[in-house]
Amino acid sequence: MLACTYLGPGRIELREKPKPELLDPRDALVRVTLGSICTSDLHIKHGSVPRAVPGVTVGHEMVGVVETIGSAVSTVRPGDRVTVNVETFCGECFFCRHGYVNNCTDPQGGWALGCRIDGGQAEYVRVPHADQGLNRIPEGVSDEQALFVGDILATGFWAARISEITEEDTVLILGAGPTGICTLLCVRLRHPKRIIVCEASPERRRFVREHCPEVLVTDPAACREFVAAHSDHGGADRVVEVAGGEDTFRMAWMCARPNAIVTAVALYDRPQTLPLPEMYGKNLTFKTGGVDGCDCAELLRLIGAGLLDTTPLITHRFPLSRIGAAYELFEHRRDGVIKVAIRADE
């Protein structure tokens, strides 16, 4: 089968690999129908993810059809259309039982697919702990509608949930890339008083204005003053940092009002500084870490009910055979690229 393979820093190639086989009774084999390129895949390509194993098939954002299941799998069966969770998790350890599935203690737990074990930018993918990692796609929900459920939409939903947003809040979202827009869509479900999005790219600011006209939009140069002028207490009540830029972590806490919640879900390329003397007296609460993707069934329900739609994020589509060109396009963000979908069954 064809598989997009990480060969070491700076090198990703489409290679021929054997079709995966079940290795554990809890595994399922999924025929991938649609996948996408995530910014995390670029981090792997650039050598910024030390855990990434050379030779691994990349890709952790995909949907497909169950082909075979292990003897211990009970929640899906061959022929089911499914989303694949970015995280593999056992569902039994301390962290899983408390909903912190990103911290699963199983050897293959956490972000394994497309990083430590073969992922889904391929024709087939083996999914460990399939009872937890796969969710059946409801009738009437297309592959494109479900594509982002297992990763960036789960990230946005989790970020909105842990930010404790109320209807009185002004929420600032830093970043309007794919994960930032998914976060915006999930924040809207909580009906805050106002939402402000800060984004450097003119194309992405235009995208937000077109699809979410009620949302206020600013750029990084004006962000601090803009937020102060459009909030009730001198700063945002909730800040969600999704950009992961050079100075966006600092911007996040500086734009927050005293006693605000700052949620950082961005993946940074380098360490960030927490300058406690500068922020003394702001009494901020910080929440941070990787996504706990345990809300996929609820996300599919919301999509089926017409309350979430991420299909406008898909701005470019490629067959798997042209994934090299797709990476080139996505990496250099030409023509205002938001998200690239990879059709694996063409």
Rank of each mutant, 00 (worst) to 15 (best):
T5M: 02
P9N: 04
R15H: 10
D24C: 12
R31F: 00
K45D: 01
H46Q: 14
H46D: 15
P50F: 01
V53L: 00
V56S: 05
T57H: 08
V58F: 10
G59P: 13
M62A: 15
T68F: 00
A72G: 07
V73G: 10
S74I: 00
T75W: 02
R77N: 01
C90V: 00
C90P: 09
C93M: 06
F95I: 03
C96T: 03
G99R: 03
N102G: 14
T105N: 12
P107R: 11
G109R: 09
G109P: 09
A112F: 01
I117V: 13
G119Q: 06
G119C: 03
R126C: 05
R126Q: 04
V127C: 08
P128W: 02
A130K: 09
I137G: 02
V141Y: 08
E144C: 04
E144A: 15
G150F: 10
G150E: 04
I152K: 07
A154T: 10
R161C: 00
R161Y: 02
R161V: 00
T170Y: 04
I173E: 05
I173T: 05
L174D: 05
P178G: 14
I181P: 02
T183N: 12
L184E: 08
R188L: 14
L189A: 09
V197H: 09
R204K: 15
R204M: 09
R205A: 10
E214W: 07
L216C: 10
D219S: 15
P220Y: 11
A221V: 14
A221K: 15
A222N: 15
A229H: 09
A229E: 11
H230M: 12
H233P: 02
V239A: 07
V239D: 09
G245H: 09
D247T: 15
M251Y: 06
W253G: 11
W253P: 09
R257D: 00
P258S: 01
N259T: 12
V262Q: 03
L267A: 14
Y268S: 03
D269P: 04
R270H: 14
L274K: 06
E278H: 12
M279P: 02
K282Y: 04
T285E: 02
F286I: 10
F286E: 03
G289M: 05
G290A: 12
G293L: 02
G293S: 15
D295F: 13
C296R: 15
A297F: 07
L299M: 03
A305E: 15
A305Q: 15
L313H: 08
L313F: 08
S321G: 13
S321W: 01
S321I: 05
R322P: 00
I323W: 01
F330D: 00
E331R: 06
E331A: 12
R333K: 15
R334T: 08
D335W: 05
G336N: 11
I338K: 14
A341F: 04
D345W: 09
D345P: 09
